[in-house]
Design a protein around this nucleic acid. Structure first.
Length: 277
DNA sequence: ATCAATTAGAGCTTTACTTCA
DNA sequence: TATGAAGTAAAGCTCTAATTG
């Protein structure tokens, strides 16, 4: 599946030096992370509302004009390039700011024209050495995402096909997949860290509880009268083979002996449900 | 071919300031 | 003169395309 050889294996070793070097091995295998959230988040967070400035009609006009431009796309005519005065390495205008949601909202014809402009890119179209950054269109991103869901790596044939379909250079497709893999990995690392944090908290809590129990037992031991009246300890008998706490069958007459014979697993992860989406 | 680390452009938000009714 | 609304610019932040080794 997706994580073939890119599996992110987080391994945590918690060493307890006083407890026969018991170590806790966590081998966390990542699973598929929904990609829609992170990849499209930027599309949903714009909230800036530009309001016309009555006092500055020229600026207002300019701004509203710029707002309608898809920065990912080349203008449909030479005029557009003259207006923008920018030629990116990918022959896309990317120096004009504007709300993406509004840009996306422009009518279909315009979009088509702009999309068409963004294709047919060649490397030698610009002599500008400055790095102008392409911003992939929503459609391009969606197609790449879809493709990534199917396979997170590309063979040369797939790469070429995708590049052709999207009107991008194969190198761009390659880079996109590389960055996408990195994003996935980072996301998974964050999830794993959260999980480990919760595990740690649970262990700390468990430790605190056990310390308290030890203290109580010591206190009881120090008062012999109480100690003699006590029933034998009912907890903390470690089964040497399975390393689980076993409760002696005669521990308490009120409890089902079958249940008591069964070792009680120590499960510090009990409340740390590992998120896997 | 792929990765990790890094760079840098673009777009968005926040904030401080100005202008004006 | 004080006040609030609206506009603007700059700083800072996030995201991500692209580069480097």
């Amino acid at each position: 599946m997706m994580f073939g050889k890119e599996d992110l294996g987080l391994s945590l070793s918690l060493g307890f030096s006083q407890a026969h070097h018991h170590s806790l091995q966590l081998n966390l295998r990542p699973s598929l992370i929904p990609s829609s959230a992170d990849s499209c988040s930027s599309f949903h967070k714009s909230s800036c509302n530009h309001v016309s400035t009555p006092s500055d009609p020229f600026r207002t006009e300019t701004r509203s004009f710029l707002r309608g431009i898809d920065v990912n796309s080349l203008p449909s005519t030479v005029d557009c390039e003259e207006e923008a005065g920018v030629s990116s390495p990918n022959s896309t205008i990317s120096s004009v700011s504007g709300k993406r949601s509004e840009r996306e909202a422009i009518n279909g014809d315009e979009i088509d024209i702009e999309r068409a402009c963004s294709r047919g890119i060649s490397d030698d179209e610009d002599g500008d050495t400055s790095r102008k950054k392409l911003r992939l269109s929503k459609d391009q991103s969606a197609i790449l995402e879809e493709s990534f869901k199917e396979h997170n790596t590309l063979n040369p044939k797939q790469k070429m096909g995708l590049a052709k379909q999207l009107g991008l250079r194969p190198r761009q497709v390659e880079v996109w997949f590389q960055n996408r893999r990195a994003r996935t990995k980072l996301k998974q690392t964050e999830v794993d860290c959260e999980f480990l944090k919760r595990c740690c908290e649970n262990l700390t809590e468990e430790n605190r509880r056990l310390q308290k129990e030890v203290q109580e037992l010591r206190a009881l031991k120090l008062s012999p009268q109480l100690y003699m009246q006590m029933t034998p300890p009912t907890t903390l008998t470690m089964c040497p083979s399975c390393e689980r706490v076993a409760v002696p069958p005669n521990a308490s007459p009120t409890v089902d002996p079958r249940a008591l014979r069964r070792p009680v697993p120590i499960n510090p992860w009990a409340h740390a449900v590992r998120p896997r989406s």
